[in-house]
C-alpha cells in the first residue's frame, strides 16, 4: 500500500508516513530514553549512598571527599558537566589504552589540534559496527548522569539519615544492638521515609533531563522530533511543510504522562513505607 506514496492522499498518506523506517527509529528512541532511566538509577543510588556514607565517615579524608563531591557537582551547571565528563572520560580511556597497547609508539598523542591515538587504542575500534559506537556514547552519558545525579542523591540521603529521630537510635542501642545492627535494622529502614520525597523529586528532574542526551549526540526523541518535523522538500518520499510543532507537542504529552505516572507510583510508595510511623514525624498521610 505504501509503495507509491505520491499517489496516496489524506489518512492513507499519513498512515504510510507515520510507519516509515525513519519513524520506526523515532519510536525506538523512546526506548532509549526509558533505557537510560532504568540503567542510570541503580548507579545514581550507588553514587548517592557512597557519597552520603563518605560524608558521615569517621575518617576525615573520606568526609572531605564526600563534601567536595556533593558541593562541586551541585555548584556547577549540569550542562557543563554533561559536556565535560564524556569528552574527558573518552580521552582518558583512549589515552590509557594507547599507553598500554601501543607502548612502543613514539608519535605524540596531542598533535596540534588533533587527539591522535593508535588504531588499536580507539574506543571502540574504528572498524566496529556503528552500534558499538552508539553503545559507547550511551555508556559515557550514563556515567555523566550518574555522577551528577549521584551528588544530588548523596545530599538527599545524607539529610534523610540525619532526620531520623535520635531517640530511635538510642532505643536500638538500649536493646543491645551494635553500630552495624543499629544502622541496618533501625536507621536505614526509617531513612527511606525521609529520603523518598527528595528522591522522587530527583527522579522527576532526571526524566526532564534526559533530552540532554541530545546534546551528547545521542539520537533520542528530541533529535528525531526536530529531524522529522523539519520541512521536507521533494527529495524526500513524503514531502511536508514545517511540522515541528506537532512533533514537539507529542513529546510534551509523553513527558507529562511519564512524570504523572511516576508521581502516582511515588505517592503509593510513600504511604507504604510510612506504615507504622507517626504522621507527625513523617508528614505522610497514611
Amino acid at each position: 500500500m505504501c509503495s507509491d506514496p505520491s499517489s496516496l492522499e489524506g489518512f492513507q498518506w499519513l498512515l504510510c508516513y507515520l510507519t516509515t523506517a525513519k519513524h520506526m527509529q523515532f519510536y525506538g528512541s523512546f526506548g532509549i530514553v526509558m533505557l537510560l532511566l532504568v540503567v542510570t538509577v541503580p548507579f545514581i543510588m550507588v553514587f548517592g549512598f557512597l557519597g552520603a556514607l563518605a560524608r558521615r565517615s569517621g575518617f576525615a579524608p573520606f568526609r572531605w571527599f564526600g563534601l567536595g563531591y556533593t558541593s562541586m557537582v551541585r555548584g556547577v551547571p549540569d550542562i557543563a558537566f554533561f559536556l565535560f565528563v564524556p569528552i574527558a572520560l573518552d580521552q582518558f580511556v583512549e589515552f590509557s589504552r594507547h599507553k598500554i597497547k601501543c607502548s612502543d609508539s613514539t608519535e605524540p598523542i596531542y598533535q596540534g589540534n588533533d587527539f591522535v591515538v593508535c588504531a588499536a587504542a580507539k574506543m571502540p575500534l574504528g572498524s566496529a559496527p556503528q552500534f558499538f559506537h552508539e553503545a559507547w556514547g550511551f555508556t559515557l552519558a550514563v556515567v555523566a548522569f550518574a555522577i551528577v545525579f549521584g551528588a544530588f542523591a548523596a545530599n538527599t540521603i545524607h539529610g534523610a539519615l540525619m532526620a531520623v529521630p535520635k531517640g530511635q537510635l538510642e532505643t536500638a542501642r538500649a536493646y543491645g544492638m551494635n553500630d552495624r545492627q543499629t544502622f541496618w535494622r533501625v536507621h536505614m529502614p526509617q531513612m527511606w521515609v525521609y529520603a523518598l520525597p527528595g528522591l522522587s523529586n530527583l527522579w522527576q528532574i532526571l526524566i526532564k533531563a534526559t533530552p540532554l542526551l541530545f546534546l551528547l549526540g545521542i539520537e533520542e526523541i528530541v533529535y528525531w522530533a526536530r529531524e522529522l518535523g523539519g520541512a521536507k522538500t521533494g527529495f524526500f518520499t513524503y514531502p511536508h511543510p514545517d511540522w515541528r510543532m506537532w512533533y514537539f507537542m507529542a513529546l510534551l504529552f509523553f513527558y507529562v504522562f511519564l512524570t504523572w505516572a511516576s508521581q502516582k507510583a511515588f505517592i503509593w510508595l510513600e504511604i507504604k513505607l510510612a506504615r507504622g510511623m507517626t504522621s507527625r514525624t513523617t508528614g505522610v498521610r497514611a
Partner: peptide, 9 residues
Amino acid sequence: AAVSALAAG
C-alpha cells in the same frame, strides 16, 4: 562490545 570490536578489527 569490546570483544566483537576486536574481532571486527
